[in-house]
Design a protein around this nucleic acid. Structure first.
Lengths: 190, 190
DNA sequence: AAAATAAATTAACATATGTAAAGTGAATAA
DNA sequence: TTATTCACTTTACATATGTTAATTTATTTT
């Protein structure tokens, strides 16, 4: 889920030919966007894979009028609305930049087409999705295994620097607790 | 994660050539195994993808001496230790049959090789893993979104028939609560 | 069928966590 | 700079959930 492979990282999963690299590079769009930019709104169909090259973004949804942040991408990590991109459903979540960010955007359609043209990229992509699955399951595991307190301590490891760059209320919902409980957790640490 | 594509279901994700289907069919092993059979033990490296054609299996791990069931596969669903198969790590979880089952086994190595020989299978597999990722994320979402009560009601939908075929203590840990709380939940429903 | 084991429920109690509200501090906008 | 908004913490209270233990029910085993 994180450390989204740029071309080189893709190539680490499976070697890519020069032709494939060139083709792949041509479908990447680079953008620099200000704080609070919405990369995806609720209900829209997501069509784009984002790579937060430098910056911070969150994905969140609404539960009874309350925002639940369920995913962060920081400095080099990957971000997309998986259910929407891969299943064509309207997105139940929104994606927002928490700070000014430099991002790489890839149309999923372009990516899919590129995979069809290059078996080596298809293979790297399959391995990538195995990896994303793995990381996704670690998230589940984390929710089951660990207390809110433990997860708080883990956030910084998985997203280095985030605690100083992100409102704690986002962190609170991310680790599955209330902002009040998070304050209690933090008070107990010092 | 569930409804593991047999060959036909793979083909639904992307058309497969006759040669590919034949090749794929040759790597599937069919077995009939008794209740309580361990498909995978703790600490072993998992090398096999399982498809529970008819029957019931669970994956579980140990937390402070307590068994936590985190995954079920019933009648036609897929089962494997993702972190171990895709990352080569010793498995932190074990897989056990809850009842006598007919299962299809595929060596991941064979599968990987078969993908290398057939771009169409590779493509279907990539789409499969996108789908598994999707379902995995729904699991996360379910843990965040829903109360133990709601998740109890959902188990039967996702795993039709399971409540009459599986000890409730497994269900309790699966939905992230204690057996006592599950009893209270059930008592409150009638 | 009887005995033994395992599973499920119930009760009693302690505790963690959520909610609501008030207060403090920091950041942003006018 | 001042005013306004937002972020964070703290308190008080209610409640849901876990733990332990006792009891009932179901399932295996001999």
């Amino acid at each position: 889920m994180e450390n989204f492979p740029d071309i080189d990282a893709f190539a680490e999963l499976h070697p890519l030919s020069a032709a494939c690299r060139e083709d792949f590079a041509s479908i990447i769009q680079i953008q620099s966007l200000p704080k609070n930019t919405m990369l995806l709104d609720f209900g829209k169909k997501a069509t784009t894979l984002f790579f937060i090259k430098k910056g911070l973004a969150r994905a969140y949804y609404n539960r009874d009028g309350e925002e639940i942040t369920y995913y962060f991408a920081i400095d080099g990590q990957f971000m997309c609305s998986v259910p929407s991109v891969f299943d064509g459903r309207p997105s139940f979540s929104a994606i927002q930049l928490i700070e000014q960010s430099d991002i790489h955007c890839i149309s999923y359609q372009d990516f899919d087409d590129c995979c069809a043209r290059h078996h080596d990229l298809e293979r790297a992509a399959r391995k990538l999705f195995s990896l994303l699955l793995l990381l996704g399951l670690e998230d589940i595991e984390s929710l089951r295994f660990h207390s809110a307190h433990e997860r708080y301590l883990m956030v910084e490891k998985r997203h280095p620097g985030i605690l100083n760059r992100c409102p704690l209320k986002y962190i609170a919902s991310y680790i599955g607790t209330s902002q009040v409980s998070l304050s209690r957790i933090r008070a107990g640490i010092q």
